[in-house]
Each structure stands twice: as structure tokens, then as C-alpha cells.
Amino acid sequence: MKYTVEQIMRLVDHSGLKPYLTEDDIRNLVEEAHMMGNYAVCIEPIYGKLALDLIKSKKYHIKLDVTLDFPFGSLSTTSRKKIIEDMDYADEVDIVVPMGYVKSHRWDLVDQDLKGIVRTAKDMGLVIKIITEDGYLTREEKDRIYDSVIRSNPDFIKTSTGFADKEYCRSLGNVSGADPENVRLMASKASELGSDIGIKAAGGIHTYSEVERIIDASGRPIDPERLRIGMSGTRKLFEEMLAMKKA
């Protein structure tokens, strides 16, 4: 393996975002993240305070990452900013681009929204990741939204939610989750703009080989401040890498 178990696990935002997850599921998610050495747990806002209390009580070194306006990116900018202002328990937030504006090519409103929510998050001391939901975008739209996101100066640009409509994605010739080629495009656009923005790949990542391809495409160092992997199947990857290490 090119990378160690510890290196990969430290890049992971261990995610539990299904709507039917219970409080016990979230507790298990936090315990797994600690055991595997993950950087963060990524959850829905409803369980934010529960997760924070557990992390603090156990003195775990895990960041709390909360998804906002997820997975559609359909709220007004005012609502999005207000939700961010209420994130007094989170370390990081992942929020979807205003997808309706993107698909309508209202780039003026896209830019206004992104600059506003990034500024609000930074005023709150939050790390912010902007989700572009690549599977919904044409090649031209990807180029334009990557530009908008990077210029709005968040901490990370993120590929996908993992909840995209697969049929619509296929109609555009896209996959619904993380695609190394999109990661490569993000890295290229960032280089073009002189930005060292972090990249987070998420959605449909299951194996070590997939993770390795994403890392290579990103051009980023093995550093959670520059590169993240969002996944719910972290335990499977962890066990796969342990088995590869023993082989």
C-alpha cells in the first residue's frame, strides 16, 4: 500500500447521514471514529449536541462536522446564513451550493450566496466545506461552479453528498458520487486561480484503491487540513487495509 492505515483514517470524516439513524447509531458512529482514528464525524444537525456531549465527556480528539441545507441546497441565502449562525456546537459545516441557481445559471445569485455563507461561517470560527454535487452538473457547469466556490474562499470544495439522483446523474454522463476526474478538475481550477483550497471527496467511496485514486487526483498532501474523504463505510475500508497490511 502506498499509504498507511493511520494516514488514510486520519483523512476520513466518518459519516452518518441517513434520515433513519437513531441516537444509538450516532453514539456508535462517534465510538467507531475514535477507535479508527478518524479526523471527524459528519452528521445531521439534529444530533449535533448529542455528539458534542459524547466527544467532550470521553475527551476524544474528533472534530464535529455538521451538514446544512443537505442534500438539496434549496434554502434561501438568509436561511442558510441563519442556520450557520446557530451552529454553536459544531467545528465544521458542509453545505450544498444553491443548486437551483446553479442549474438556472444565475451565477450572480450563486456568487452572492457563497460569499455570504462563507463569510458567516468564518465569523463563527467554523471550517466550511462547499458541496458542488458534481453529478448534477455538465462539464461547463462544473468549470463555472468550481470557479465560484474557490473564489468565495471556503476551507474546502467537496464533490458530492452521496444522495444525488442516480438517474439524473446518468442522463448527464456522470456518476452520483465522488469521481477522481472531478477531483482532478477541482485541483486544476484551484491551481489556475492560485488557491490552495482543501478538497473533500465523498459519495460512493468504499475501497482502498478508490481512495488512492482520489488522493493521486487531488494533488494534495496527506493532511486533513488539505484533503478529506467523506464516507459511511469507513469500517469496511479500515478492515480491508488491516488485512492488506497483514498480507
Rank of each mutant, 00 (worst) to 15 (best):
E141R: 00
E141D: 15
E141W: 10
K142E: 14
K142T: 01
K142M: 09
D143N: 06
D143Q: 05
D143C: 03
R144L: 05
R144F: 00
R144E: 02
R144I: 10
R144C: 02
I145N: 08
I145T: 03
I145K: 03
D147R: 04
S148V: 08
S148Q: 02
S148L: 09
V149W: 03
V149Y: 02
I150P: 04
I150K: 00
I150T: 11
R151N: 13
R151C: 01
R151S: 04
R151K: 15
R151P: 06
R151Y: 10
S152T: 06
S152H: 11
S152D: 10
N153Q: 14
N153G: 04
N153P: 00
N153E: 14
P154D: 09
P154Y: 04
D155G: 00
D155T: 03
D155L: 02
F156A: 02
F156H: 09
F156S: 06
F156E: 00
I157S: 01
K158L: 09
K158F: 09
K158W: 05
T159I: 08
S160N: 15
T161I: 11
T161A: 11
T161E: 11
G162L: 10
F163A: 13
F163P: 06
A164W: 02
D165H: 12
D165C: 12
D165I: 15
K166N: 02
E167D: 15
E167N: 13
E167L: 12
Y168G: 04
Y168H: 03
C169M: 12
R170D: 11
R170T: 06
R170G: 06
S171K: 08
L172C: 06
L172D: 02
L172M: 03
G173E: 08
G173H: 09
G173A: 04
G173V: 12
N174Q: 05
N174W: 06
V175K: 03
V175M: 03
V175C: 11
S176K: 11
G177T: 06
G177E: 03
G177Y: 06
G177V: 09
A178D: 07
A178C: 14
A178M: 09
A178G: 05
A178H: 05
D179Y: 13
D179S: 15
D179V: 00
D179M: 09
P180Q: 11
P180C: 01
P180T: 01
P180E: 10
E181S: 15
E181R: 05
E181C: 07
E181W: 13
E181L: 15
E181D: 14
N182S: 15
N182C: 14
N182R: 13
N182K: 12
V183F: 04
V183A: 02
V183C: 15
V183M: 07
